[in-house]
Computed example of a mutant assay.
Amino acid sequence: MSFVPMCYETQFFGFTPQTCILRLYISFQDYLFDMLLVVESVILKKIEKVPNCGISRSEVRQSTEKYLTFVNDRFNQLFQRMEQCLLKMVLKIPRNVLLPEDKVHIEFLYSKEKFDALQNDTKSLQTQYKAESLATQALLAELEEQKAIQAELGKILAWFDGMDKICREHGNIDLLESFAFMVQTSKKLQSTVKTIDKKHKKLKLDPTSKKLL
């Protein structure tokens, strides 16, 4: 039996050509063995009808086994030729024949360089996709944070509106004007504190001022 791999033929037929040939061989062997058993039984019946034949059943069996060996040797020689014929002509797909699912390779021919370039492009796209996915997640997280801050600002504005309404109902000045005045006053105080601080630093650095003190 030949053990040459025939992958394309296996893909086409759905079984390996060697398996098919092996099954044929076994079938012929079984048929030959059964046929000789039938022939042996017929010979034994004929011998039983012949008086004083002098041929025993064991001698018939030995003759059957010898004949089986002879026929089997001749059959193996013939089967080797049949195997070569089946593998080269019957179960062999020519090189110019393509399966329907493989015809796409004719339309889209790719060399090793093109395949490597496609792999590199795929890796680059995967890296870019991961980076964009991380950026999208960061933007979504920032958006959620902004929504939370906006909600807090809304609460603060609602509180200011409530306070302003209460002040107006009790005849007080406008709350926004009051806060603006407080902000201006705070800025003036901060400016005054900075001026005093500068003068204090100058006094520390001026030796004449220490003598006067």
Rank of each mutant, 00 (worst) to 15 (best):
S124C: 08
L212S: 11
R61H: 08
V71Q: 09
Q62V: 04
E113P: 00
E101F: 09
F12V: 13
M163Y: 08
D121V: 02
E145T: 15
E48C: 04
K45G: 05
C7M: 08
A158W: 00
T69G: 11
I26C: 03
F75K: 03
P100D: 05
V104Q: 09
F160K: 14
K103G: 01
L87W: 03
S27R: 14
H200M: 11
G171A: 02
K123N: 12
S41M: 10
L87A: 00
A148C: 06
R57N: 04
S111E: 00
C167P: 05
K198W: 05
L91K: 01
E48K: 09
N120M: 15
Q119H: 07
Q62E: 12
L143P: 02
A138H: 12
T192D: 07
F181T: 14
Q137P: 04
P17A: 07
L68F: 11
L205P: 03
E101M: 10
Y25N: 06
C53L: 08
N120S: 15
Q62I: 08
D30W: 01
I149N: 03
E132Q: 14
L87Y: 06
K92V: 04
R23P: 02
F28S: 07
L118T: 06
S56G: 10
C85N: 14
C20N: 07
I156C: 04
